[in-house]
Computed example of a mutant assay.
Amino acid sequence: MSSGGTTDGASSPPPRQQTGTGRWRSMARATMVPVRTFQASARTPLLQVLKTAAAAVIAWVACSFIASDEPPIFGAIAAILVVQPSVNQSFSRAVERSIGVIVGVVVAYLVALVFGAPSWLILAAIVISLLVGWALRFPPSSTVQIPISAMLVLSVGAQTPGYAVERIVETVIGAIIGVFVNWLIVPPLAVQPAHDAVATLGREVAAIMDGLASVLSKPTDEKFRTLLLVEARLLRPMQTKALATLETAEDSLRFNPRRSAHRDVLKTDAALMTMLGTVVTRVLGMTRAVNDHFDDELRSEPMTASIAEELRRAAHDLRLVMENVAPSSRDVERLSDPEPALTAPIQTLSPDPSHWILIGSLLEDLRRVREEILGAVDDLH
Rank of each mutant, 00 (worst) to 15 (best):
M1R: 01
M1S: 12
S2L: 09
G4H: 05
T6H: 13
T7I: 00
S12V: 08
S12N: 10
P13W: 05
T19Q: 08
T19N: 12
R23Y: 10
R25D: 15
S26Y: 11
M27A: 14
V33T: 13
V33Q: 12
P34T: 03
R36W: 08
L50D: 05
A56W: 03
A59W: 00
F65D: 02
S68V: 11
F91D: 07
R97L: 11
V101F: 07
V103Y: 06
V103T: 11
V111H: 02
A112L: 05
L113R: 03
G116R: 02
A117Y: 15
P118N: 06
W120C: 08
V127F: 14
S129Y: 07
W134D: 15
S142H: 02
S142T: 13
T143W: 04
T143K: 04
I148W: 04
G162C: 11
V165S: 15
V169I: 10
N182W: 01
L189T: 13
A199D: 08
T200W: 01
G202Y: 03
A206F: 03
A206G: 09
M209L: 09
S217A: 15
T220I: 02
T220Q: 09
D221L: 00
L227F: 08
E231W: 00
R233I: 08
A242P: 05
A244V: 07
L253T: 06
R254P: 05
N256A: 07
R263C: 05
V265L: 09
M275Y: 08
V279K: 01
M286N: 12
T287Q: 03
H293V: 04
M303I: 07
S306P: 01
S306I: 00
I307M: 11
A308T: 08
A308S: 14
R312H: 12
R319D: 15
M322T: 10
E323C: 09
P327G: 07
V332N: 13
R334I: 11
S336P: 13
A344I: 06
P345Y: 09
D352Y: 04
I357Y: 13
L358T: 09
L363M: 12
R367G: 15
R370P: 13
E372L: 01
A376G: 13
V377T: 12
